[in-house]
Design a protein around this nucleic acid. Sequence first.
DNA 1: TTCACTGCAAAACGTTTGCAAACAG
DNA 2: CTGTTTGCAAACGTTTTGCAGTGAA
Lengths: 139, 139
Amino acid sequence: MEDNPSDSAAIEALTPQRRVVLEVIRSSMGHLTANEIFEEARRRLSTISYATVYNSLRHLKQAGLVGELNFGNAASRYDRDTARHDHAICTKCGTLVDLYIPATIDLMRAAAEQADFEAESIHLTLTGVCSGCRLVVSD
Amino acid sequence: MEDNPSDSAAIEALTPQRRVVLEVIRSSMGHLTANEIFEEARRRLSTISYATVYNSLRHLKQAGLVGELNFGNAASRYDRDTARHDHAICTKCGTLVDLYIPATIDLMRAAAEQADFEAESIHLTLTGVCSGCRLVVSD
DNA sequence: TTCACTGCAAAACGTTTGCAAACAG
DNA sequence: CTGTTTGCAAACGTTTTGCAGTGAA
């Protein structure tokens, strides 16, 4: 979760725009959308454009410095945590929660064998109702 | 996988357009996109419109007659199999394979507890390289 | 007559691209 | 100089919507 020291060199090589985008993602607790990242990035670097945010996100993702998450047809969300982990998503409010289920990786072999795939990664998504939404009276 | 007899009443109540959309999905072996469904539906019912295909898909999904799958920012794919199951997706060619990993459901309790969610469903996605793409010389 | 559904066109949404200008090595 | 990156605007692919017209109950 904390910055990986081996990233330092890669981070120093970033353009100011890309560094700002990365810092926005790293400084947020949640999983921001490109639009949210753009808004916050613009506060820190007023000249940055929408296209550059998208270009930066693509570059950072490719460089392994951020992860991208897709659920449904909504906007992608970007994850500061690039290590393999799982997610839970609330069907009421859309809240996205990080999940660390070590047993997920155990299913990779069986899944790869069944699919006849050379496995690269595996991801578990729990859908349900978050604690906040369970407290709401009106279902 | 075969038609559930309890669906018969629901299917008879469908409009011709919705029935065609459902039949296109049920008669395909794969996981079609809305556009592919539209093209095939139009062959069977030449007056059907794009909007009606989308409206039908929303209705059929809500009625539990088809499932919707999202991977990346690509177009949604529609699944004739509405029972819980998992998927593998090839990072080279995008091929989508159905996976039946019973152990996935065993992770639901642990995941729900960790997230403090009331669990509804769980889905496992394997990413990797399919058998066809492994045979290709040029990596 | 009512109400849901259709078909069309247009809009909305998230994302990508073409391009000229700015920049770094 | 060369190659990369930026910012802008315009385009793109997917999905939804407004609305008038249709059709069934």
